[in-house]
Design a protein around this nucleic acid. Sequence first.
DNA 1: TTGAAAGCGCTAACAT
DNA 2: ATGTTAGCGCTTTCAA
Lengths: 335, 335
Amino acid sequence: MATTIRQIASAAGVSVATASRALNGAPSVVDRTRERVLAAAALLDYTPSRLGRSLATGSTGNVGVILPDVTNPFYTSFLAELESVLGAHDRGILVGDSHESSEQERALIRRMSGQVDALVLASSRLPDADIVAAAARLPVVLANRLLDGDAGDRLELPERLAQITLDIEPAFAEAVRHLHALGHRSVAYLDGPPQSWSGRQKMRSLERACRELRMPLAVAATATPDFVGGRRALASIDLTHTTAIIAFNDEIALGLLSALRDAGVEVPARMSVIGCDDSLPEGLAWPSLTTVDSSARTLGALTAAAIVEPKPHHTATVPTRLVVRDSTAEASVLS
Amino acid sequence: MATTIRQIASAAGVSVATASRALNGAPSVVDRTRERVLAAAALLDYTPSRLGRSLATGSTGNVGVILPDVTNPFYTSFLAELESVLGAHDRGILVGDSHESSEQERALIRRMSGQVDALVLASSRLPDADIVAAAARLPVVLANRLLDGDAGDRLELPERLAQITLDIEPAFAEAVRHLHALGHRSVAYLDGPPQSWSGRQKMRSLERACRELRMPLAVAATATPDFVGGRRALASIDLTHTTAIIAFNDEIALGLLSALRDAGVEVPARMSVIGCDDSLPEGLAWPSLTTVDSSARTLGALTAAAIVEPKPHHTATVPTRLVVRDSTAEASVLS
DNA sequence: TTGAAAGCGCTAACAT
DNA sequence: ATGTTAGCGCTTTCAA
């Protein structure tokens, strides 16, 4: 067994109450006493039990983070930033991977609640009602998702539910205008997971922008929102009529680039490609990818802030912008 | 406040002890009583407090996992597998990112110990002594690292220290022989982090294999063991005398490939490249990468097994093998 | 300024 | 088969 506060107390010749106060820097402890306690603690290599403290104070110092896929670079960047900030505040992280499944997500929430002070749900695939229910039990920060507050105000949003999102609408509209200006007259969109809120946002933004410019929008699905999914998705695209493709994320765009190269379709001469996230290191994509910069790290930082300094009904949004590189060019003339 | 076992007990008209037994499926509870308790629990939406249970039983059901970099695909694959297996056993994961720093690693261990049942240290950058000290406090599984047990047996290895490693020696030797057979007469090695145990293993394997074949080995460092590090490292390679490069991992190799393409050096015609891990999805590298297959997922699975079914002085090793693809070919004749 | 004692939610002897 | 009781390690009233 590890050293307990009782041993410290008796070693220092004080009561446990005093030992506790000294250890926690209570002002009411006289210097000489504090020194004795601290010395005893150092001597016995004392580490306070988080469990005991948590039970007594009702706060654990940990936050639960649930991601759809720990393997996805977008979420690992997010997690890295979150971990970094929370770690600096001496708070631990319990992670869970929902594998894009709402069932698993529910199970994780159940397992975590009770041993965390707050929950971060990244791109939650849960129905609104479940999220509201979770937020009733403990503070929840929703990252990359918004609840349908406008839907007739049917469900009251809990105070302790924060929502941090990416403002992708303007950048996606700009992407479409960018393509239009290059002479493209139709756009194909490679979608992400069907339950993804951000995916729906992207779809909506594209639909709207395309409508305004009178450009048809073709939508194709990907089995998985990653490199492999992007590679496979090329098969579902009508190459004879498509000159420009926008992807749900950079991973998909990268897979697409790879498949296009294999198929002998030149980028950008014959096909323009646009990604989303700007998550790839320079030089990984060839040609370098035109993309919508939406920083997962910033999302992580704002999420961490929402945990560290909670505000009722807190919302924040990460701005995004189109970054034009070498994967988009003037539309080729189709034969 | 959430529902407590006391409320369940009084609602069901039994003592807390009986309630506890019923909830935990003790055989000594008669069916009718159990039903009443379970019904009360369901009615009141009861979730047992992990904290209370942990304090009483001395086991938390959580394991701590410390990685050098949550953003690195090798570690995320490892983590994904670990999470998957442990999650199936209803055990939670506390993650920490040490950012390749032993200082941070120490701090994380301190924060975690006391609230986890076991610790997983992936590619720990800590001195042997610290690891032994940690293992004295709680079970530790060392992944991708071995302690110097042979160094005069100076430090007794704790029983509860498991060590899971990759057996890279044979595959690295084979990589060198593969290059030699293709006519290469010298090898360059792009190393990983200096504190990395596996990096030293790789170096040693290469040195030995090269010595046997009388091939000179040139070693260059990378600032970071990732794509960007690989790209930058090309500058430190003598292109006029090098025909083959082996990299610490696939990320570095990928960066190298990208830099070589920018520099107009053809792969494999002019330069052969070999990676390590086989962590890239098919099609990501161009040309496809000859690499040493050493599965991070398998490492994760074996590590999870060491947690779930602990054995004293447990060790296990993941076999590796050379996978020949398109990035290696006959040595070019240098002018 | 310090100590005694209660209690956080739960489990596990020990009794009955 | 069930109840009583004593903690697990800590914080925090309340008294002194």
